[in-house]
């Protein structure tokens, strides 16, 4: 079973059971230091092991993050950053090519 937050990616992949927590990527088990919420989320996720009867079963957790700004801000592209982003991409491609050239990659 998957306990996670990127529902579009998980549903495209297709998994037996998915407990969906609609939080920013990074804290699928609950907000940091909120042990009560974490316990509740993990317990409910586990119950899906029992309740699901077919593949692609998705259950959404009722908890909310508290604010919604993160939804728009994740990987946000500001028009004034276009040139900078192109330079970053160029730098990234150059580095990747260098790593391939020197063999700093997985061999298996």
């Amino acid at each position: 079973m998957i306990l996670g937050s990127a529902i579009d990616i998980v549903e495209r992949c297709g998994v037996p059971r998915f407990y969906f927590v609609d939080f920013p990527l990074g804290n699928p088990c609950g907000k940091p230091y909120d042990q009560e919420m974490q316990g509740s989320i993990v317990s409910k996720a586990l119950s899906l092991f029992v309740s699901a009867s077919e593949a692609r079963t998705v259950v959404k957790d009722p908890n909310r993050w508290g604010s919604e700004e993160w939804r728009e801000r994740y990987m946000e592209i500001n028009p004034e950053d276009r040139e900078k982003m192109l330079r970053q991409g160029e730098e990234r491609r150059r580095k990747r090519q260098h790593l391939r050239d020197i063999g700093h990659t997985r061999k298996d």
Partner: peptide, 25 residues
Amino acid sequence: LAWDKEATHLNDLGSYLPVRILQTL
């Protein structure tokens, strides 16, 4: 990795690795 480094952090293990919660369960 790609995750929301602006909105949150990984300082609390329990928020993404539920081992202790499972031990309690």
